[in-house]
Amino acid sequence: MINFIKKNWFIVLIGILFVGATVFFALEQTKDLLPGKTVDGKDIVFEINGQSITADEYYLELERQFGIQAVYQLFERAVLAQVGDRTDDIITDARLQAESTVASFKDYYGDEYETFLLEALKGVGISKISDLHLFFESALMLEDILTEYFSEDAQYNKFVEVRKPRIVSHILVRMTNPNSPTEAEQTKLDTVKAAIENGDDFAELAKEYSDDTGSVPQNGKLGLVDSTTQFVPEFLAASLALTEEGQLSSWVKTTYGYHIIRLDSLSKSEIIKEEQFLSSMVSLFPNAQQTLIWNKASDLGIKFGNAEFEARFMEYINSLNSEEGDE
């Protein structure tokens, strides 16, 4: 051994220096790490006053305070994962929505966007930004399932009976004081009236003359309107009074000016495609999501870990189902 060292002293020296550097590097990496602790084989989360609180005890307290809501979120996702149709469109849309959300946070919060985004994601049980697309996938699958459910006759017919849904468009001639229009305002109103009476295309007229900048890009289309839509009363009443597709209202005076409204469609196949459809149905059937998820879960088969948890979970389910809808 000594002869070996004498003969290869330079290599041995390099080896010792290398080992020393490695150990030093390892110690530097670990010196600031949080050490763990176990007692009787159980991991400890914290210790105070000589008493150790295990991960199990920590979990029990978290579960007692927030567990049912957490399990319900996981329950819903598990059901959707099994009954939802994870189409290519959903995967793509979800990814786009995730990217758009990240971009929005970056724009608003700058370099610190991750902190704020992660804080916002805490409420939906997501701890990594890279998992955000999964959240949107679940949401989109849920939308599809709900739309399918709400399109069934039982639900849709009640919607029609209670809310009178329709797709409408309008043309607005804005006036500072509708009771006393200016000359210019009156001229415009007269021009539009004449064009309407002449049978000119409503969409073209809306594009050219309407002062409602929000609907002009869609040729005056306001989308789905029903009895709960937040319009001024005169406008809403006139919209709901129309009975045939293509029918025009008489001119309606509101605080904004004068409107003429067209009933575009009463068709179910078109109404269910409108973006306001889901929110309107959810307000009429606030328990629908929970009922639907529960029914699908029942079809799949549900088994609880223990009776106590089952009782708490069912109490939570029943509380979700106890909300009444707005009619």
Partner: peptide, 8 residues
């Protein structure tokens, strides 16, 4: 297991 639904 806390809860089983179908195969999850």
């Amino acid at each position: 297991p806390v809860l089983e639904i179908g195969d999850t």
